[in-house]
């Protein structure tokens, strides 16, 4: 187990899929200002599987939201496949999310009163896929997360773990390049957690999908290639897992 300080700024390297350079995020203004991120430098190569750990409030979600183009940094640069995301418009960022990213939210964010199948179909609707293909692929994604037979159920009729799996199916259904997961096993018992982690590991190994995953549990983080530790809005250290699991 080796650790590496990443406090020195990175130069823009060719081939990185995600790159953060001096990214800061401040919420609020004046005396109420809250520095959630304080100069984060991070480089993630295609096909990597990165776990993010750290105490509550250390800025993990904030960082992941920026990587996922759901939020913009207060300062610093964010590159996606070498493209400066800060220079993209609202719509261009939406298109980037549509075609490259899959997001698994901390609170699922499924549409209420909407069946699991329709929730999973949603990214495909915005990709303009015709209905028959949509159904088929959504169905496959639900099977992949072990939810066959639950297609017609709405989030209100599903357990937390099942909702989590619907959220995973929705994140992977459109074949993203990067999957960003905010505590994907946070609501699950260890058996279910292992199932979810096997799904994610398989996506990473077999399809080469880059994964960035926040977790509080080190045995979950151990599925990743490396673990980034956050503290007070910056990366404290990076830990390489060296082929564990």
């Amino acid at each position: 187990m080796s650790s590496l300080s990443t406090s020195q700024p990175l130069t823009r390297a060719e081939g990185a899929i995600i790159e953060l350079s001096g990214v800061s995020k401040v919420y609020g203004q004046g005396r109420a200002a809250m520095q959630a991120l304080a100069g984060v430098d991070l480089r993630i190569d295609p096909g990597d599987f990165v776990a993010v750990m750290g105490p509550s409030g250390s800025g993990k979600s904030t960082c992941l939201n920026i990587i996922g183009c759901l939020d913009v940094p207060s300062s610093g640069a964010h590159y996606f496949e070498g493209v400066d995301v800060g220079k993209l418009s609202h719509n261009q960022r939406a298109l980037l999310r549509r075609h490259y990213l899959g997001f698994i939210f901390q609170g699922f964010n499924l549409l209420n009163r909407t069946s699991a199948l329709e929730n999973v179909e949603l990214p495909l609707v915005y990709r303009g896929l015709p209905a028959p293909q949509r159904h088929e692929r959504a169905q496959q994604a639900l099977v992949a997360v072990g939810l066959q037979g639950w297609e017609r159920h709405t989030p209100g009729e599903l357990s937390g773990g099942q909702q989590q799996r619907v959220a995973i199916a929705r994140a992977i259904v459109a074949g993203p390049v990067v999957v960003l997961a905010d505590e994907p096993t946070g609501n699950l018992d260890s058996a279910r957690s292992r199932e979810i982690m096997e799904i994610l590991t398989e996506l990473n190994r077999k399809q080469g999908i880059t994964i960035v995953m926040i977790t509080h549990e080190s045995d979950i983080a151990a599925y990743a290639n490396r673990t980034i530790h956050f503290r007070d809005g910056h990366i404290e250290r990076t830990e390489h897992n060296g082929g564990k699991v």
Binding site: G68, L70, H90, N91, A94, L95, R97, R98, H99, L101, F103, F105, N109, L110, L111, N112, L122, P123, Y126, R127, R170, A174
Partner: peptide, 13 residues
């Protein structure tokens, strides 16, 4: 929230 979800998934404004 629904709009947020749709935007996050890649819907255009």
């Amino acid at each position: 929230r629904e709009i947020g979800t749709r935007l996050a998934i890649g819907a255009l404004e």
